[in-house]
């Protein structure tokens, strides 16, 4: 039996990248909005944290998200390995960049790995001190805070300059990943044409900039607050 097209076909595999990527873009967008709430009110933010605590739906969503991340990464690595093979064993001695081709588009795996690294740091900083703590049945995390007091956790984490630096680098990598990823997911799922291609590219860039800008804003604001 032939494998289904989402495994057996190059266009199908790209479709999986596109759909998993789209879901992650939506999650990241939601996350950015959620973070922005922390800028307005610590209580409101903590309410959100409570809602997303160890509830069954939040846990299902978390697992779904983890699965999406896994699929996205696994396919990304798989595609890259196939593509290296397709390129042949002998490489060009001289290679120049193509005009009008974004650097990010050719380095999505590298950017993805940086994003993954940042994600690991982020998970130990936050998820491991919040949802995980609740799942383990504890009422206080390693910092001695309530696992639902997200606002305090943010304030603590971004009072350290090195964390701020790590996060900003992470955001930059994610921004680059998204500037290619957003329009690319439309392209790979066939939702684009001559007229809309440039428009979708612009929308993608704006989207990535606004979302990552919100993330960066929260980090910077809390760092500045910690200095005052």
């Amino acid at each position: 039996m032939k494998p289904p097209f989402i495994i057996g076909s190059s266009v199908g595999r790209k479709f999986v990248m596109s759909i998993s990527g789209a879901a992650l873009v939506l999650f990241v967008s939601f996350h950015a909005v959620m973070n922005a709430i922390a800028l307005i009110s610590a209580d409101a933010y903590n309410w959100v944290c409570a809602v997303l605590g160890a509830n069954w739906y939040a846990l299902v969503a978390t697992m779904g998200l983890a699965a999406l991340v896994f699929v996205h990464i696994a396919y990304g690595v798989w595609l890259t390995l196939q593509n290296r093979k397709a390129r042949g064993s002998i490489r060009y001695a001289v290679s120049k960049p193509n005009e009008g081709v974004a650097w990010s588009s050719k380095n999505m795996l590298v950017l993805g790995l940086v994003v993954l690294g940042g994600l690991c740091v982020h998970l130990t900083h936050f998820w491991a001190k919040m949802q995980l703590v609740e799942v383990m049945g504890e009422h206080v995390n390693s910092l001695g805070l309530s696992p639902q007091d997200g606002a305090a956790l943010i304030a603590f984490t971004f009072s350290k300059w090195y964390n701020v630096l790590i996060y900003l680098v992470w955001f930059a990598a994610m921004w680059l990943h998204l500037t290619h990823g957003v329009w690319s997911m439309f392209q790979s799922s066939g939702v684009s044409n001559q007229t809309w291609l440039p428009r979708i590219k612009r929308i993608g860039n704006w989207w990535a900039t606004i979302v990552m800008g919100l993330f960066a804003l929260v980090v910077i604001v809390f760092y500045i607050k910690s200095l005052i």
Binding site: G8, S9, S10, V11, R13, K14, L79, Q82, N83, K85, A86, R87, N98, E99, G100, V101, A102, S105, K106, M108, H180, W183, S184, Q187, S188
Partner: peptide, 22 residues
Amino acid sequence: MVAKMDELGFGNCTNTGACQAE
């Protein structure tokens, strides 16, 4: 055509747009 392309060992498109540029 996509099936044949895959079978012949061409790679997966990652939308870099280098093809269009050249």
